[in-house]
Design a binder for these strands. Sequence first.
DNA 1: AATTAAATTGTAATCATTACAACTTAGAAT
DNA 2: ATTCTAAGTTGTAATGATTACAATTTAATT
Lengths: 138, 138
Amino acid sequence: MNSSIKDLLDELKNKNIRLSHQRLKVLEYLILNHCHPTADQIYNALHKDVPTLSKTTVYNTLNALVKANIVRPLNIENAETRYDINTFDHGHFKCESCGDVVDFSINLDALKANDLNNYEITDKNVYFKGICPKCLQI
Amino acid sequence: MNSSIKDLLDELKNKNIRLSHQRLKVLEYLILNHCHPTADQIYNALHKDVPTLSKTTVYNTLNALVKANIVRPLNIENAETRYDINTFDHGHFKCESCGDVVDFSINLDALKANDLNNYEITDKNVYFKGICPKCLQI
DNA sequence: AATTAAATTGTAATCATTACAACTTAGAAT
DNA sequence: ATTCTAAGTTGTAATGATTACAATTTAATT
């Protein structure tokens, strides 16, 4: 379901994205953490291991990966862009209590919009909000 | 399909939102312009007629209307919250060429997520991106 | 090893939104 | 109608995410 790291590296090479130490670290973090982190979360997590890392580089890398279609930006909430490396069709659920964002599977092809017959649709997004089971128990 | 202005006024009264001149102007603008404007667009449009209007008031009004469930905020793009007064079930399409956002009808009840059986879902959002017919012709 | 275009970094700028405190007003009570 | 008070308005300043930029460093090719 998820691409192997090697596949990703090949994809990056094809798209002429240089594999710097910093970029590999950001990629590794996204692969290991499917929690839809913000740029800030990524920066804070990596800064311990890579003290020279700058936040600009995190943004730069994320923008490059988005342009290369390797990660998707999520704009569920204003002023907090999250990043997702999962490429299979899925929706997102955000818990309004704890703030966690989780994936759920959904058939986007089945989502038809008759009003948009003459429109060229390149991107479909679905997100739900509510309360997750963990927070419902409390 | 759209509430009459009188219905809205009643709803506002019920929710203890005072009907100041400024707020009525913002409401009127949203009712007359279903183009999903940003706070800035609303401010610029109204500033001619109401020179004393401040941008803070526009934000304040929009936040009050959102809290009262009279308008919905759209976060399709990062750093640009748009506002929508249409309350019927619908999705949004954003043209990546001209930037326009249009509504389209969609049955949100039919959108099932089996992965979220134990989740309480309070809000469903669907937005598509692509190119609108006008821009396809050019 | 030399070259060069691309990546990295820190700082400063930008832009949407919010915080705040002084002033004004809507709507209720008298 | 007048008074009262909580809520709304305003301008300015603060915040916080993201980008611009210019100097330095590096990846990968010649």
